[in-house]
Design a binder for these strands. Structure first.
Lengths: 197, 197
DNA sequence: AGGGAATTGTCACTCAGTGCCAATCGTTGG
DNA sequence: CCAACGATTGGCACTGAGTGACAATTCCCT
């Protein structure tokens, strides 16, 4: 918490801001890592120390949402799974709307470029695995429970991804979308998961 | 038909085979495009002309499955959507099992490496869009039908992806997995889609 | 056989990403 | 306040993916 930590956080934000600005103005492919570093006032090498890849420059917020999602899932251990997932979704929506920066612009950027979309989607795979073990626990381990849980988790993440995408690229509010999406999986979610009392 | 087309197909296969062999033996990151090209007996530049990126060396078969899926969807225009999707899934399973090469080894490779998994998943996004318009047509255009269709398509693709992944990384047969997975979405699929008579 | 088009190889380049080392800056103890 | 220490930074050089341009080669057609 000294000057050092302070400066690091500032540099990180400078880089991310410079990236979003340059990317939206000139396009992701036309901007080099050196450009971003220069605008942020650091060397190319340092930029790579803060963000291991060019794509990561834009992934801070999406990653943060997923973290909120996971924390909310874990915070409500006792409840039925369907409720926990829905609650977590709304926590993410609240988190996003409380955010001062131009998250939407950033998200639209991420979903527009194939490389960024791929990076984002692949980062959701980790959370899908996390969701899988959660669902599996609620399933009380039948024989093919593992596969069942994995597929259900993939479906949930698919819906969450597309909710984010629709929200980022249109003007629809997030909460109704989320409810509508999760309703699609209401039956399998509540069927197998009544809380593990 | 001529010698030219013949040779091109052979070169393409040589490159893909060389890639799978080298990747499984030494690991994706340890093998360079030059290595693959050398083993296939062509220049580095030519290798890039056949496969626009290193990842694509391994994507021919996954892409082919998705194509089979789409063709089956289109071939059964009259039927209810849920039936069409299920039928298409089984068409893919049949296609895979009729395949002489070590598809499974290749698939396991693709799902193991983050870059390859990302590439594959992002390629499924195009088919999800295709599925979306199909679902949307069956929905008879309600007000928020577009979003509904997009989310449902994402869920279907999520399930298909994870079916492929489970199949590639375990010993479970594909068809039961697919049926089990699509059952999760039985309600929303059949509810809104009774064929458009 | 020979002209023409497609394919291939070579060269040179940009840029992402990384290891290494010296310089610099913030921190901490005197 | 100063010196020593450790963390951060910048510069340099390198590997490897991907691309454009052009000359050489190969196949096709007449």
């Amino acid at each position: 918490m000294g000057e050092r930590e302070n400066k690091k956080q500032r540099t990180r934000r400078d880089l991310a801001d410079a990236a979003v600005g340059l990317f939206t103005e000139h396009g992701y492919d036309q901007v080099t890592m050196a450009d971003v570093a220069a605008l942020a006032g650091v060397s190319r090498r340092t930029a790579f120390r803060y963000f291991p890849s060019k794509e990561d420059l834009v992934m801070d917020y999406p990653i943060a949402w997923l973290q909120v999602f996971e924390e909310s899932i874990e915070a409500n251990q006792g409840r039925p799974l369907s409720v926990r997932i829905r609650t977590a979704g709304h926590a993410v929506a609240a988190f996003i709307q409380s955010d001062p920066v131009a998250v939407k612009q950033l998200s639209a950027l991420a979903f527009a470029h194939p490389a960024l979309a791929a990076k984002y989607v692949s980062s959701t795979r980790r959370w899908a695995q996390r969701l899988t073990v959660e669902i599996e626990r609620d399933l009380d381990g039948g024989p093919e429970a593992a596969a069942h849980a994995q597929m259900l988790a993939a479906a949930v993440m698919g819906i969450i991804d597309s909710v984010c995408e629709i929200w980022a690229t249109t003007d629809q509010p997030m909460e109704p979308l989320l409810d509508q999406g999760l309703d699609l999986l209401a039956a399998p979610l509540s069927a197998a998961a009544g809380g593990h009392s």
